[in-house]
Every structure is written in structure tokens, then in C-alpha cells.
Design a protein around this nucleic acid. Sequence first.
DNA 1: TTTGGTGCAAACCGTTTGCATCGCT
DNA 2: AGCGATGCAAACGGTTTGCACCAAA
Lengths: 169, 169
Amino acid sequence: MRKQEPSPIAQRLEHLKTVAKDAGVKLTHQRLEIFAELAATDAHPDAETLFRAVQSRVPTVSLDTVYRTLWKLHDLGLVTTVGPKRVSVRFDANLAPHHHFVCVRCGLVRDFASEKLNALRVPETVSEMGTVLNAHVEVRGICSACQKPKKKNAATAANALSKTPRTKS
Amino acid sequence: MRKQEPSPIAQRLEHLKTVAKDAGVKLTHQRLEIFAELAATDAHPDAETLFRAVQSRVPTVSLDTVYRTLWKLHDLGLVTTVGPKRVSVRFDANLAPHHHFVCVRCGLVRDFASEKLNALRVPETVSEMGTVLNAHVEVRGICSACQKPKKKNAATAANALSKTPRTKS
DNA sequence: TTTGGTGCAAACCGTTTGCATCGCT
DNA sequence: AGCGATGCAAACGGTTTGCACCAAA
């Protein structure tokens, strides 16, 4: 997946078709529209925003379908979600610069320190987006607890929420 | 979780006292307990988790107080939240490695690319936490739209959600 | 026909808010 | 007394789920 292609959106649609066919899921009109809408933006819309957008072209679509489609695409590894998890707000009293390890399976978030990473500089491009306050690295992975299926105490302190592990990748 | 330091927790509590006194907010028993609980962990608990923890020592506290306290501490700059915003899940169809600029005011999230940042390596410490899948940089700041108070189109495509801007005051 | 997808409405759950009370200054 | 903080319960809003219907294989 290099860049410089004329249309990453088209590519994404192509990828969608491949994966969908491969997985045996139907590519309905709604699903195509929803994915197309999402693939065409980098604004990381939420379900409702996508819903409204799609609705203007497919008036019969329902919000539920948007949700179901998005999670299905997520299961297929075609879309990701931003942030640690689709759950509650999480708080942090550590004001010192630090970074996050996020378990995509259980939602656990743990800090780690790194002088090197603290010192990283962001490209000037970002300045055009707004004033930078700070930056940190977010590492995604599977935490140790989640790797041993024996233990069920997945998140140690931050779970009790895993129903259908929406995780894919 | 080692504590060779003179205890960052104590430091945080000290900071809390200073800031609170300075801002003229009362440091009630509940607030102290809630903050202490949060300051003592790096597990980034959610409100309910903190609630349960505090409850064992202060059986009379209510979940509402935990919420109100946390947001108050947030307003005072004593705690931060993890993730883009305390709102809906946001989706992303961009599977290529990329990074995020997040506006802390309106919640806008935009992508930016950077070869250098793509190449960053995380310290080995992280491996102890779990298997690393990927890593990206999350930059926090104020987006251009939010900086001009004249325009009300804060998030351009990703808002319509700001009620009481919990941001500072 | 069988199966998966969709729409609708109700259920769920995390979070917020109105209001009366309580405690500190 | 005055005022902020708290607890309770109700309200809210985003997300999920059960169920019946529809469409494609």
C-alpha cells in the first residue's frame, strides 16, 4: 500500500470488495454507501454523522444498519476506531509526559515512559491543523493478560466489558 | 509499579492542594479520596471503577460525585482524559500507518502522515505489557477552527456535540 | 427455501442534570 | 446565614438487541 495513487478511496473500495467476497459477506447497497462515505474522509466521523451523510443518498437506511455495518467492517479489519475503546471515558492523573500502551482486546491502558519518545517532533504539516499542545505515542497491542486464555481476568482493573471481542487485526 | 521516587502520588496530592487552594475549590473528603485513588494508579480507570474503589472507603459517595469531581479536576488541569473525546466512537477507513491530530476543544480528529514517525520504535519495556501491533503518534492541540472565536463552525465535520465546553474555563 | 441483511422499536448503560439537603466558613 | 458540595432520582443520548420482514442465492 504505497501512496501516490490517484485515489486511495477507490483502492479502499477495491479492498473492501476483495475482503468481503473472501469472507462471504454480502456487499449490499447500504454497506457500500456507508463504507464509501467513511473511506472518502479523514475526519473520523461517528456513526450518526455517517448515518446522516448516507441518508441523503439512501433515505431508507437506518442508524442501526450503520452501526452494524461499521462493526462488521471492523471485524473484517477494514476499518479501525480511534481511541482506546468504545467505552467510558478514562482518566489520568499523570501529568508528566508519558505514552500509552492500549490493549485492543480488553481496553486496558497503561503508561510507559521514554525520553526518546518524549523528544519526538511532529512535522510542520500539523501546525496547519492547529496549535500543538503536546504529543504522545499510542501503542496498540494485546496485553499479557489477554494472551493467556486460561485466565479470565483480562484487564486487571479496566474491563468487565468484553462481550464479543470486536477486535480483529 | 516501583516507587523508588519520593512518591509521585504524594507529589500529585501536594499539587492538588496547591491548585485547589489557589482556585478556591474545597477539598472535601470525597474529592481527596477520588483524586488519591486516581493518582495511585496508571490503569486509567473510568468513573465507575473509581467509584467502586472509593466506595469501599467512603461508602456514602455517589457515582455522580465521582463524575463531577473528575470533571472538576479536569477543569483545574489536574487530570486528563485518554482518547480523543468523551463522546461517540469514531471510525477510520485509513489502514495505512498514520498519525492523529486531536483538537481538545471540539474533538476534531485529523490524520497526518510522517515517514519519520512511522519508523519510531517503542522501548522494550512495552513488550512486557503485551504484544505490540502498531504504534502511532497522537498530537493534542487546538484546531484552527476553534482558534477563531468568530466562526462557530468549530469542528467542520466532526462536532455538533459541544454543550458545555468542559475545557478549562 | 434458506440465510443473511435491514428497519423498527424497545432495551441498555454510561453520563448528566435538577433539586433538596448538608456542611463548612 | 450563605454558598458550594453532595446524594438521589430522573432525564438524556449513544449504542445494542429482539423480532419480523425482505432480498438474494
